[in-house]
Design a protein around this nucleic acid. Sequence first.
DNA 1: TGAAACACTGGGCAATGTGCCCACCCGATC
DNA 2: GATCGGGTGGGCACATTGCCCAGTGTTTCA
Lengths: 161, 161
Amino acid sequence: MSTDGIDELDGRLIVLLAREPRIGVLEASRRLGVARGTVQARMDRLQSNGVIRGFGPDVDPAALGYPVTAFATLEIKQGQGADVRAHLASVPEVLELHTTTGHGDMLCRLVARSNADLQRVIDRVVGFDGIVRASTAIVMENPVPLRIIPLVEQAAADGPG
Amino acid sequence: MSTDGIDELDGRLIVLLAREPRIGVLEASRRLGVARGTVQARMDRLQSNGVIRGFGPDVDPAALGYPVTAFATLEIKQGQGADVRAHLASVPEVLELHTTTGHGDMLCRLVARSNADLQRVIDRVVGFDGIVRASTAIVMENPVPLRIIPLVEQAAADGPG
DNA sequence: TGAAACACTGGGCAATGTGCCCACCCGATC
DNA sequence: GATCGGGTGGGCACATTGCCCAGTGTTTCA
């Protein structure tokens, strides 16, 4: 079993990678003041740990032509969960989907080309038998974009284990 | 001004990068069947475009020891927006924050070490003067993790402009 | 107390990829 | 008919990678 948690060096490495993703192993080792092999080993471990899932390109939907983001809370008909999940997964504008506690609900993140287009997306999302009701909140501002650095620093400070 | 939208080759490149983030420019050019310089130019353009924001490590909070995710809807006292934003930004467990239409609200994504720990996080989040009320939905399942590939394919199919 | 296990260091190697050139070609534009 | 933008295919020096090694300190455990 991989021990949860990261130590201080792991933390510094992840933060460094987050801030300057294109640097290589050698440069990272210079910045961190450790040997190259150490960085190599840490990165291997972090990835096989699952702490670092990958280095996918961070694509901005707005720059793709989808500047509108919204969150939709869905109420699902009993027993229709699997069908609804499959349906939502087939809609490209659904960027993520969670099932949550509360009203036996789902929460999904949507994007659209415009407010008018959002209507089309929502119609497509809710135009499915298993969905009883949907309430949508349109995002106006994003004061804190998805981030991980503060949490990494916290986790590193708390120490491994 | 950069024209919104991507063409079919951009799309294939992004999808390729998303699936195999560690491949280099040369390998990408081989896979796509184009010259290396083309890939180089496309990547430069996509990044200065803002379509690709970067290649940050994709860190899994669960593997850091924060397996619990929740979404909190916050009701804010009039005029306290800026203070609340600053307060939430100072909490590491707040991974993102949006202001939304609806009840003049905010929506934030939280993580915690456990359900019990979530209580601590929520107390910290809402223990601030400008926040009137909070309702929290704990994530049970994540049938569609944050994704971008289907949207990229859609955008590429729709063509540039 | 001794031995083994582990992580890190610092170094060396061949192979590969990178950044940066160039000349050339082609289609669209004016 | 010329120009321009984007793609091609090639070449170059240089840096980096992946992989090896032996040596060292620290911790763990018998």
